[in-house]
């Protein structure tokens, strides 16, 4: 008590603008230690063995060599499952994005002011986003059986999580001005969403949905690996039979399709916005 009373009226130091000492960068040190520690630990944990990899590199190059001679005659077999794959991606994206659209408003704090509601539905959205797509597919194959339906459900849920998250973040960062203008004109909550929020975010929604579609086309090609329909089923068969010439053909075809889809999707985006 006394001490502090005495020290309080300390005279301000004379104007000698000395360079203040740079505070020690604890944070940087911690991050560095964490990184190095993490690297060592993860290396040990996963038994990283570069020697083994180098020693067996022949095996790997052999597969690559086989892959360099794709079995072109197999093309006719992959067309049908490929189309099924694209259909799965289209339907999954449409359903997922369709649900994500209203849902995003429900979890946006500038639209719904009730923190309990936004909190609860955000929690659900976050949980859904944590589950990897192939695991979802494996689960739904167990539930609805082998076939594209399991894939569609998986992609719909996956899209819902992705578009829902991106979209609500867009909704939360809109210009508040028009909302205020509408409120001042006597609009209710629904009218505000319709005339002040939706017009501002529609472009984002289209963009994110197309982006999700691009990702879904890629994802849908492997869902078949666990039985959820599409070209992945054939991928799994041929991998099992070590037919790397066919595997590489399928990878090539998927690559071509992905390029085309990405192009179409970007053109669609341009036309819609």
């Amino acid at each position: 008590m006394e001490m502090s009373e005495h020290t309080q009226p300390r005279p301000t130091p004379p104007a000698a603008p000395q360079l203040p000492k740079k505070p020690f960068a604890w944070e940087r040190l911690a991050v560095t230690v964490l990184m190095i520690g993490g690297l060592v630990w993860s290396g040990v944990e996963t038994q990283v063995n570069v020697g083994q990899f180098v020693a067996n590199f022949g095996q790997f190059t052999q597969i690559l060599a086989e892959m360099c001679r794709p079995d072109w005659s197999y093309v006719s077999y992959v067309v049908a499952p490929l189309i099924e794959t694209i259909k799965m991606a289209v339907i999954g994206t449409a359903i997922g994005a369709g649900i994500a659209f209203p849902y995003a408003f429900l979890v946006s704090r500038n639209v719904v002011t009730n923190r309990f509601v936004t909190g609860l539905f955000r929690f659900i959205l976050n949980i859904i986003r944590t589950i990897p797509d192939l695991l979802l597919a494996a689960l739904f194959v167990a539930v609805v059986g082998i076939g594209p339906v399991a894939g569609i459900i998986t992609l719909a849920i996956f899209t819902f999580g992705m578009v829902g998250k991106l979209f609500f973040e867009a909704v939360e960062t809109i210009d508040e001005g028009p909302i205020e203008a509408l409120r001042a004109a006597g609009a209710n909550q629904w009218e505000i969403v319709r005339y002040a929020v939706v017009p501002q975010v529609m472009g984002f929604f289209v963009s994110y949905t197309l982006y999700a579609f691009e990702i879904n086309v890629r994802a849908s090609t492997v869902l078949g690996y666990v039985g959820a329909g599409g070209i992945g089923v054939f991928l799994q068969q041929n991998l099992g039979q070590f037919r790397y010439d066919r595997v590489s053909l399928m990878v090539l075809v998927i690559f071509a399709v992905v390029l085309v889809i990405d192009y179409v999707s970007s053109k669609t985006r341009e036309a819609l916005l």
Binding site: G177, P178, A196, P199, M202
Partner: peptide, 10 residues
């Protein structure tokens, strides 16, 4: 309003 508060994209 000072900053108009229009929906710019509409």
């Amino acid at each position: 309003f000072q900053n108009f508060n229009l929906v710019k994209r509409a």
